[in-house]
Design a protein around this nucleic acid. Structure first.
Lengths: 212, 212
DNA sequence: TAGATTGTTAATCGATTAACAATC
DNA sequence: TAGATTGTTAATCGATTAACAATC
């Protein structure tokens, strides 16, 4: 096979994490009706280097044209497709407290390639509510619901104390990813569950270090 | 001077971002009354390598002891001190919507070396409320308040459309950092303002890529 | 003392940057 | 065509890993 068929080299994590930034900026350019952009311009706007931009994009294919640059709308679409944003997967939210409700109310899951299907909570006062069109079901219904609708991803916005072994359980239920807002890192090697940790505290501590 | 006085080499960003993870885990160990830990154990718990752990820590000093390892409580304190968690700086929150209120209500700013002083909003219904002991003032009071109390950091939880040139203004007001939850990247080179971007969308898109 | 584990230097690996021929 | 800019290879830089003498 000799590593020549299909895509070039497997994109590193660093590359993947830059893709949303390209996407977001290209989206802006489309809105402003900009037609073309060079790797230099793109780099300048995002604080990267032109080399880096070209290297990044060439992990996935040659989207540019010599002497011209990149077609903005086309590149935006290509990156959307690489990330999977052109195809929506189901998601549920577990823990409809303040943060959970803030996400349900304000965050655009569709933009990120997901459809928010339902929320689950243990709090009687919250169960039965509808937030931005999403119903909050009792936690006991999670299993049945998951088996019926097969959501791909669970958003964990419950208190750290309530996490327990829910992650293993989600894996058993067939989830393929977890967006983890609980204040504990989840790193499993034994399952195929993809975990994306969002650590507010880590982020703020890094800022604390820098403002000393 | 020859780069031999004081700390060894300047810690890279990658190192800084691992410090909160060490800190968090050491905090747990202290709670469990574990006395000592080796670089191997620490590495295993966090998914790093022992070499990496020792390299990281030795950016700041030799906190261990041959044949023994590291004293848990001592190392925890050292890292807290490096991050600045042993000294609190003032912070204000700008935009007391859902996300802002979720942070005010649930997030422990003290743990991260800050004291939340006040919140600001333009919404009449929110102004005057008190959330977890923090008063919400009208946006117009931000300037006076900042000049009087000199908070170090502003937490930006306002809608992207409302951001405008607030960041430049904060810089003028003497802020030294911004914790940015608005969905636009802020990268300035001209000011000394430290910016920490929290990008939910980028994070979820990265997960979307991995669950394909 | 013998065993364990650090601090630190050297080797490796991977990611970023530079350079340039290809070509629109 | 001449100028611009890509795709890609090579060079550099930085971060991670390995190795081991120092030493508790």
């Amino acid at each position: 096979m000799d590593e020549k068929n299909g895509e070039k080299r497997k994109p590193s994590n660093a590359v993947i994490r830059r893709l949303p930034k390209y996407y977001r900026y290209l989206q802006e350019l489309v809105a402003r009706e900009t037609m073309r952009i060079s790797s230099h311009e793109l780099a300048a706007a995002l604080g990267f280097t032109a080399s880096q931009v070209r290297q990044d994009l060439n992990c996935f294919g040659g989207f540019g044209q010599q002497g011209y640059g990149y077609n903005v709308a086309n590149l935006r679409d290509e990156i959307a497709s690489i990330l999977g944003l052109d195809d929506r997967q189901g998601a549920v939210l577990i823990g409809a407290g303040n943060l959970g409700r803030a996400l349900l109310g304000n965050f655009d899951f569709q933009d990120c390639g997901f459809v928010m299907l339902a929320a689950f909570d243990i709090n009687e006062k919250i169960i039965g509510q509808e937030i931005n069109g999403i119903s909050v079901f009792p936690m006991e219904m999670l299993d049945d619901y998951s088996k019926r609708y097969h959501p791909a991803v669970a958003v964990l916005t419950l208190p750290p104390s309530a996490v327990g072994d829910i992650v293993d359980h989600l894996s058993e239920l067939g989830y393929s990813g977890v967006w983890n807002f609980t204040n504990r890192d989840i790193h499993l090697s034994n399952t195929t569950l993809e975990v994306e940790n969002v650590h507010f505290a880590d982020s703020l501590m890094a800022l604390r270090y820098r403002v000393k």
